[in-house]
Each structure stands twice: as C-alpha cells, then as structure tokens.
Design a protein around this nucleic acid. Structure first.
Lengths: 340, 340
DNA sequence: CTGAAAGCGCTTACAG
DNA sequence: CTGAAAGCGCTTACAG
C-alpha cells in the first residue's frame, strides 16, 4: 500500500505538490499533475483511510440501465451487496473512450471501491492490470474478459439452440432479426448470436439465400417492431419464422405481425433469447437466462476474493468462464410452418 | 462539522476510546461503544477526509430500477452527476422500515455522500432533519417532501386532464385502470391519479355507476394486460374508454384489447400518463412528463446548494414544490366513442 | 507554480 | 477496558 510520500518520491515532487495534484486543490502545472497521477496509478496509490476492503463499496461498470437485462443484473448485484453490508457505486461507461479512461482512473486514483463488477463491458488487459495492482477484485458479466472470472451464457450456443428449435419444427425460411451494435462495441452479444444462427443454418444444409438477416437500429421492442414491419411487409418474401437476437426484438416482431394481420404462430413463428419478463404475456418461446442470478453470483465472487485476501494474502484465482445454463421455454409463438 | 474530539468530549471518553468504538478495532465495553455511537449520531460526526463536498459522491435513494420511469430518472441523475465529476451511490429502499433506517444511518454515520436525491421515496421529517444536520442537501423527485425541494408533475391535475380529454370526445362510460400501491406506500402516485379521475368525472355530473375502477396488481404492462382482460371480457359491461394510471397499464390494455379482437380506438379509446418510450409505437395518447429532465434538475439543485454552502454558509432555501409541466400527446388510441 | 514546515485528525502500541 | 502520548498521512497557509 503506497502512501503519498511514495508517490511524491516517484514523481520527484514534494508531498505538498503531490497532494495538490491528486486533490485538485491549489495550483499545479499540467505536466507535474500528469506525472504525479501517472506515478499514483503505477504505484497503486490509494487515499488515506481507503485501504482495500475498508470502504465497503463496490463499483459497478455498466453501459446503461434502461434495458430489462441490465436492470435485472443491477437488481441482482444490488440485493447481494445490501445483504452483505456493501454500498454500490454506479459508473456508466459508454463507447466514449476518453470518458471511460477518466472513470477508471477515478476509481483507481480515488480508490473508493473495494471491488469492481463490469457488466457488458469488455475491459482491456491494461485496465484489468490497473485494478489488479490495487488489489481490487474484478468480476465480469456478459462475456469473457481475459484473466477475470466472468459470468454469462454462451450466446453462440443459445442462438444455435433457438435456430435448431425452428428447424426441427420444419421451418426452412427463417430470418434472423438482430441489432446494430456499432455504438456498443463491447462483447458484441448480437454478433455472437448471429454467428450461432448462421452456423446452425449452414449445418442444416440450407442454401445461402434461405439465410436472411435483418438488423434493427436498436435492441428494443420499438427497434424490433420497425425492422419486422419491413421484413414482413412483402408477402412474397415473408419468412415462416423469425429468430430474434433478443426478446425485445422478438416482442416487437410479434406486435408488428399482429398489426399486419399476420397470425402468430399459424403464419409466423417467433423465437427470442433472454427470458424477458414480458415473454409469458406475448406467449413468446425463448431461451431464458437469469441475469439477476448472474449479478448475485458476481458479487459472491468478488466478496469471496476480498475476504480471502484479508485472510492469507494468497488470493485464489476464480478466473475463467463457466457459462450459465439457458432454458428453452416453449410457449405459443412457435409451431410448424404453414403448408405451402 | 464535528471532529472525533467533539464526540469524545460528548461521550466523556478519550479520543482513543472514541476511535476504537467507531472503528470497531480494539476493546471497548458495550455500554461505552453505545454511548460513543449515540454521541456521534447526535453531533453528526463524519469520518476524516469525508467533509461535506469532499467525497464528490451523491447518494440516490430509489425503490427499484426496473421500471421505465425510475430508469429514466436514474439516467438523468447519472448523466448530470458525471458531467459535474460526481459519483453516484445507489441505495434501494423498499417498504422494509428497519432496512430503511439502517441505510439512512449508514449514509449519515459513514457520511460518504455529499448530498442525497430521493426518488419516489417520502422521507419523514426526522429523516430530513438528520440529513440537514450534517449539512447534506436533499432533493426529492416524484412528490412533495416537507421542507425539501421536490420535482415532479401534479399527478391529480394530469389525471384530470386525461379524463377531460376522454369526456370532451364524448365518452361517458370510462374505466379507470390503476395499480395497487400497498407495497409502495410512498407518494401514492396511483392514488393521486385516481383522485384526479374521480374529481373530473364528478364535475362532469356523471352518475356514480358510470365511474368504474379496476386495479392491477402491479403497475406494469403485464399487470395492465391481465386487469384489462377481465374489464373487457364481458361485452355488456365493456366501457368505451380506459383511463390508465400509467402508460405501462395503458399499453397492457391495448395488447389485451387486440387479443380480444376489440379495435382501438374504434371500439375502445385508451389514454395513459407518463410518456413511456413505447407510447408512439402503440399509438398511445398520453400525458407526457420528462423524468430524465427531472433527474437532471434535482442534481442541479443539490449541487447548487452544496456550492452555495461552500461560498458563504448561507444556504439558500430551494424548498417548495413547482410542478413540472405535462404535455398531452394525442395519438391514435383515442377517438369519439362508437355510436350506440 | 513549488517546497519547508506547521498542524489537523486519526490510530495505535504501551502502560496501567 | 481505558487514557496519555507518539506518530502517521495528509493538507494548507506561507514564503519565494
């Protein structure tokens, strides 16, 4: 645990200057401040009274909280932390790289969290190293991060399973309805699900022109609705089934079909992924995962690492990737295709 | 701002003993510890390095984060805090009173937030006093809190306006579809909206049996769907319009109507309140509010109070209740009632 | 813009 | 179980 004096020595300034540089109070030249902050990051400096496992605060990095999946994960994390007596500090990280760097330096230099849970955020090896050097445990949710314990489902396998469900019912003309993830470069959930779909369609020996793909602008009910309206508009090219990249898109597709007078499932089967809370109401067949349980597990992992570190300093390595199971919930949105 | 020495004097112990009692390190008799903790709470003791406006952390008290409204408010708060360089610590408060007391004492004794924003949480005068005595500004969202600046819409007036919209179209048989708020005793949004509905129906001189009320178990799309199914099932008692207590309930009602083959708006008009993101897609006429903007404003208020306090210690009193405006967004879910 | 030095607030062996 | 005293880590007028 480095003290301010170590940082000052490394940056070749006085304790007074180091203090001003890190606190932001008083005058420091820009170059000096950068040098001090760099030294603090390298040494893993943590402000006084903020020793590891002292703040009883866990940082959560998350891209947004307005979708069902992220809301569920967050509630799982929150309930697990509360019952262990920890607070939750929220950091939203979007695609904005400089802002992301700032937030991470924050977490590091101010050192006000004991551990970090990254949800749907792919930390770089350097980012992971910084957190590690501070002795802050890290866990991820929603896709593997190298050298970090990560929770989530196998998206490729889940999409393949959803596709096989439709194929086994006899569907041959299936459209994959995915989402554009250009603005969320991390993890690429939808890209992996599309891969699973393509793989399964290939394996079924379907001709390339049977493998159609539509892309919504956003992975929301409205995004799915809009995209499905154009997929379903032309009766000549209309598929017999839609495999959606997530349940929001699938629900949007069902609403669009009803609006166009297309009966689900008699004229169109729809399958989704995630197990959204609205899936039962829309009779949506889906591959359900349990994001809330993943949040609880992630908290369990980081708190265990924290306590192990307290005891004997030989932190056990929980890193690795054991996918959570998915469950095929068959409801009324899928059936055999209509006779030609 | 009391220091450890003040607490020690008040509890009639040495600084050393006070330190041990508050940190939990070392031996202290149970009685002594209780006396010290009581003194710390009374004096509003805050640990060193945690002076007001030093932690750059704002606490958010919120009942849950999985509904659209709360998610939007939270995103507004988060974005406003990030751009001011503050962190956000999340505290979920449900109906559990002891847990609520614990969280508030936490925030107080550990003193790790500079300010508090309460969303959909009705703080008691005592709870407000505790926060005030620490010099922590507080703002509320979603209903007036005594002596605290609070943001939100006038729910009664909004419901009255929605009802007048239906009445002016010629509807006389209108059902109010609200939600049971027994599990969320704070603010009673749905109760106030029901009041606005009843008031307007009375003012229109409608007979008591024309003023029908249905109650969903939860203010969600699924809750509205289920409740609407039974409201709409019997063609003899079916209303010509539904006034929903929030947009989730209204959307559920539209889905239920479509499922029953009832055309919206030709056979049934539906109006909601809130301006949910899915309202355009369902063509829902609604009284829109802007929860995100309310979150941003609340942050502006507490940060301004914080900075004013820094400057001259004469904190200005922003308390009071100036309702945010609502906007009637007329879409395709409302029209004149069918001819008898 | 920076450093030497005073000093604040807390913790912690040590003595009892 | 408690207190007097040393001392750690940081901040902050002050001087330059």
């Amino acid at each position: 645990m480095s003290a301010l004096s170590d940082v000052a020595r490394a940056a070749q300034v006085s304790k007074a200057t180091a203090s001003r540089a890190l606190s932001g109070n008083g005058y420091v030249s820009a170059e000096t401040r950068d040098r001090v902050i760099a030294a603090a990051a390298t040494l893993g400096y943590v402000a006084a009274g903020q020793a590891a496992n002292q703040t009883r605060n866990v940082g959560v990095l998350i891209p947004h909280f307005s979708s069902w999946y992220f809301g569920e994960v967050l509630e799982g994390i929150e309930s697990a932390l509360v019952s262990s007596g920890y607070d939750l500090t929220l950091h939203r990280l979007d695609g904005d790289r400089p802002q992301r760097r700032r937030v991470l330096e924050h977490v590091v230099v101010r050192g006000r969290v004991d551990a970090v849970v990254a949800v749907g955020i792919e930390l770089t090896p350097e980012e992971v190293d910084v957190l590690r050097s501070l002795g802050r445990p890290v866990a991820g949710i929603g896709g593997a991060i190298p050298a970090i314990p990560t929770l989530g489902i196998d998206d490729t396998a889940a999409a393949a399973l959803a596709t096989r469900h439709l194929l086994s019912l006899g569907h041959r003309h299936i459209v994959h309805l995915g989402a554009d993830q250009a603005r969320e470069p991390d993890f690429l959930v939808h890209a992996r699900r599309l891969t699973g779909f393509r793989h399964e369609m290939d394996a079924a020996g379907l001709p390339a022109d049977a493998v159609a793909v539509a892309t919504a602008t956003e992975p929301t009910i409205e995004g799915g609705y809009r995209a499905a309206l154009s997929v379903l508009a032309d009766p000549r090219s209309r598929p017999t089934a839609i495999m959606a990249g997530c349940d929001e898109l699938a629900i949007g597709a069902i609403v669009a079909a009803r609006q166009l007078g297309i009966t689900v499932p008699a004229q169109l089967s729809v399958v989704g992924i995630d197990g959204h809370e609205l899936a039962p109401m829309f009779g949506l067949t889906t591959l359900a995962q349990e994001p809330r349980a993943q949040g609880v597990s992630a908290v369990g992992i980081v708190l265990r690492m924290l306590h192990d570190a307290d005891r004997d300093d030989s932190r056990r390595d929980d890193s690795g990737w054991a996918p959570h199971p998915v469950r095929l919930d068959v409801r009324s949105s899928t059936t055999a295709p209509p006779l030609p």
